[in-house]
Design a protein around this nucleic acid. Structure first.
Length: 276
DNA sequence: AAGAATGTTACATG
DNA sequence: ACATGTAACATTCT
């Protein structure tokens, strides 16, 4: 679920929560598979006693810098999220990692589907190094997109989801961006005109900006849906043009939105505005 | 009650 | 090397 805007919302909320400088006194991993690459014991032993120095984002990863030079990298995958609790609270069955801070608070990792992963490393570039550019950075220009896409003989939508090409787009914002740019999701990337590439560049930044402005997209009310810390829902769902709007009229031309499968992913688009 | 789900990766095949 | 397809991860929601 969480794509760039949702992860950024989570990071912003964590930064507002005054975590920087606090020590992690104790931690408990209740679902061992959450920790990747090292044993739960090694993981806990290394983090225990370190201070949280920084909380940032790269692509869909949270990047947490620790005082002894380790970096905790977290991928939320489909349903991961953080929440703050008081030390005495009792965790539900979906809480898989508990980090008790030095001030009676506790940072909890909640993940109904258990796909979320924690990586602890002194070399973050090994995990983050192969990612494509950040679409919201000033260096991401129309000609950047042209360089990334012009030689690729693949359908545009799966390419937009490929994190080694562009970092941070997921299924929701990819569908929204293609609708905004009036491009069919199955159009081969190498056949996009200059004008289409410029429109797509604008569209990607536009839909991400909208998602960020509305603190992310929460699709339903279930446990697996996106909430930032404190159970805040994202408000972006009201602004989606095609995603999960199958059968509803296209906001531009009033044709019915269609859902099909592209690269094994559910894909929503307007067959009239986005012609192949 | 079957099928799909917002993400990623490993593996197989063309 | 590149493109595409499948399964796997585990659970909830429709």
């Amino acid at each position: 679920m969480p794509e760039l805007p949702e992860v950024q919302t989570m990071v912003d909320d964590l930064n507002r929560a005054d975590l920087i400088g606090h020590h992690i006194d104790r931690l408990q991993v209740r679902w061992p598979a959450t920790v990747s690459g090292l044993t739960v014991q090694q993981f806990c032993k290394t983090i225990k006693g370190q201070r949280i120095c920084s909380i940032g984002r790269r692509a869909k990863y949270l990047v947490i810098g620790m005082s002894r030079g380790d970096t905790l990298i977290v991928h939320l995958r489909m349903t991961g999220r953080f929440q703050l609790a008081q030390a005495r609270q009792k965790p539900s069955k979906h809480i898989h990692v508990i980090m008790a801070l030095d001030d009676k608070r506790s940072l909890w990792f909640h993940d109904t589907r258990k796909f979320g992963r924690f990586y602890l490393t002194r070399r973050p570039d090994i995990i983050l190094g192969s990612l494509g550019p950040e679409p919201m950075s000033p260096q991401f220009r129309a000609r950047t997109l042209h360089r990334l896409l012009s030689s690729r003989d693949r359908q545009i939508k799966p390419l937009l989801l490929d994190q080694t090409v562009i970092a941070g787009l997921g299924n929701i914002y990819a569908d929204e961006a293609l609708w905004s740019a009036k491009i069919h999701p199955q159009k081969k990337a190498s056949t996009l005109s200059d004008q289409q590439l410029r429109r797509l560049h604008r569209a990607i930044r536009h839909v991400l900006r909208l998602g960020l402005k509305h603190a992310g997209t929460t699709l339903g009310s279930g446990l697996g849906n996106f909430y930032s810390i404190g159970r805040e829902q994202g408000r972006n769902r009201n602004h989606l043009k095609v995603f999960q709007r199958t059968g509803s009229p296209c906001p531009r031309c009033h044709e019915k939105i269609v859902k099909m499968r592209v690269g094994q992913r559910g894909t929503h688009f307007c067959p009239s505005c986005q012609m192949l």
